[in-house]
């Protein structure tokens, strides 16, 4: 699985209060199963998956597929003993921030998690996807969809109601995060690789317009 045959290695972290379903959602995503048994983890715990990412270029033209090796990291629960350190967030490019729809406190703590991220992640506005998990337990819901959407909007991040138990929206949440990361990379690449003058200065400097230029540049390598 970890042979070098891919274009990008991308590391995601799952964050959120204990018991919101971080491990289960990652397990559902990589293996398509829900494991409600107690999994013993000591130290290292990440899951991996290969995906092909196709960016939607201008005019709906689909670019060449990029082979992505996704690493999905989980915590072992050490956040109860001390705050997570910068080292833990190191190298993570995207964050799946989870709360439990049946546990209001876990939703209230989303703000704290976001400020932790702003403090420790590689930049102040990293890519985050918010997931209200356990959507299958509708009868025990304590957090309204509108409330969660409002919060996500306030931070400008996507929101999904997921279920690690039946798989609802799990892939969609991860794919949305991947899309944000790839777009961000394209923007960075655009800025640093494309020589001045190539970028049109007539106000049309949106990333959409630059996709083609960048893709051409990359194929040459």
């Amino acid at each position: 699985m970890s042979d070098g045959d891919y274009d990008y290695l991308i590391k995601f972290l799952a964050l959120g209060d204990s018991g919101v379903g971080k491990t289960s959602i990652l397990y559902q995503y990589t293996d398509g199963k829900f494991n409600s048994r107690f999994i013993t983890t000591v130290g290292i715990d990440f899951r991996e998956k290969r995906v092909v990412y196709r960016s939607n270029g201008p005019d709906g033209i689909i670019g060449r597929g990029q082979r992505i090796h996704l690493q999905l990291w989980d915590t072992a629960g050490q956040e109860r003993f001390r705050s997570l350190t910068t080292a833990f967030f190191r190298d993570a490019m995207g964050f799946l921030l989870l709360f439990d729809l049946t546990n209001e406190q876990s939703f209230l703590n989303v703000r704290n998690w976001i400020s932790q991220l702003q403090m420790h992640a590689y930049c102040e506005n990293p890519d985050i996807v918010l997931c209200g998990n356990k959507s299958d337990m509708e009868d025990q819901r304590m957090v309204k969809e509108e409330e969660a959407k409002e919060l996500a909007e306030k931070y400008g991040i996507p929101y999904f109601e997921t279920s690690a138990a039946n798989g609802t929206n799990v892939s969609k949440a991860v794919e949305t995060l991947l899309d944000l990361i790839m777009k961000r990379m394209e923007r960075c690449v655009d800025k640093s690789w494309i020589p001045e003058g190539v970028v049109r200065s007539n106000g049309h400097s949106s990333t959409e317009q630059l996709h083609e230029d960048k893709d051409k540049g990359k194929c040459g390598c």
């Binding site: 204990s18 000591v42 715990d45 109860r80």
Partner: peptide, 12 residues
């Protein structure tokens, strides 16, 4: 030793 907190995974 090992410890278990609430429903978290076991940690050394």
């Amino acid at each position: 030793g090992q410890l278990k907190v609430d429903n978290d995974p076991v940690m050394g």
